[in-house]
Simulated assay, not measured.
Amino acid sequence: MIAVVAGGGGLAVYLVDQFFHQFRGSRLVVIPGGVSYRFLPAPGVTPMKDACLDSVDVDGIVADLHSSQTAYQEVMAQPGLTEVPTHHAGYLYELLTARVLLGEDCRTELTVSERPYYAHFKRASDTLLLAISLPLTAPILAVASLMLWLDAGGPVLSWHARIGQHGKTFQMATFRSGGTGDGQENVTSVGRLIRKLRLYELPKLWNVFKGDMSLIGPRPKALDFSPELFEEETLLEYRHYVRPGITGWAQVTHGFAVDEARRELEHDLYYVKHRSAALDLLIVYPHYTTKMNGVDLRR
């Protein structure tokens, strides 16, 4: 009885402590050097300068363990820090931003595990969702095609060369709604409406059916996209490890018009690294995604 009471009391104290701990921000010591500076402007981080370590209850040490060994050893030599857990700067950056940390030269190493069952499950899910949505999408495709043909005449589809899984190229279909890449300088009223409603992306369902794309994945890129970011071929291999998608992690957390190639790449690599059915569900429900764990991932 004494053992049961003691064990239950200890568990209750631990649970209460953990409950109240979630309302207190973690106090971390960030060691300068390497990519540690990228951690400071991350969402949810408030720097506290000129703090005496002896007077602060430290929860952990953050360091770039690849290039800050000297500074790390000096900090860890201080009394009271020998038992404090150490975290790599890239790990916490990934935890707070849902992006993979890239260095200045965009070099990184990812552990991309094989998940054959997930790949088959995702392909089956894409096919099933296409079949279920066909009664809705088929009439929209037919009406949009007829409107474009009556408005401008000629072909209603436009084909674009894109990079697919494992670097293979494929022809991606969109409605010829005018604008950049469609071969038309003037955007008609119907084309403008098609683009405003984002209906011009519906023909991509044909690429999903063929297996060139998936409903969810990194957005397909042109053959000459951002070559300055990819000095290391491994980054291309990582990003193209999965099928490109109509929408992806970067789009729901940062928007479709991602204005920073590095940030979009960090989002895409995060998806490749953590790809799962649970992450796909977060992408489908973007309201929860952008506020995951109380952190605004759009920052």
Rank of each mutant, 00 (worst) to 15 (best):
M172W: 01
G8M: 08
R243I: 07
A89T: 11
M147A: 15
Y288G: 07
I246R: 04
L102E: 08
Q18V: 03
Q184A: 13
A142F: 15
F256Q: 14
I61T: 10
L101G: 06
G191M: 02
T289C: 12
V252L: 08
G10F: 09
H160A: 12
Y118T: 01
G255W: 03
A42L: 10
L297R: 08
A277D: 03
I140K: 02
K196F: 13
L95C: 05
A3I: 12
G167Y: 13
L157T: 05
A89P: 03
D126F: 09
C52Y: 01
F170H: 00
H287N: 05
M48Q: 14
E237W: 07
G255D: 11
A257M: 08
S214R: 00
H87Y: 15
F19H: 11
L229C: 09
Q69V: 14
L65T: 14
E185M: 03
L236G: 02
D224L: 03
Q22N: 08
G255T: 10
L129D: 05
D224W: 12
F256I: 07
Y91F: 15
F225K: 01
T188K: 04
F39N: 04
V208G: 02
D259N: 12
A119T: 12
F230Y: 15
G10L: 14
F175M: 04
G294S: 09
R243T: 12
L110C: 11
L150G: 00
A98I: 00
E114G: 08
T290A: 11
F230A: 04
Q171G: 04
R24T: 09
Y91C: 03
H120W: 06
P79H: 10
A144P: 05
Q184T: 10
D17H: 11
K196G: 07
H274P: 07
G217D: 00
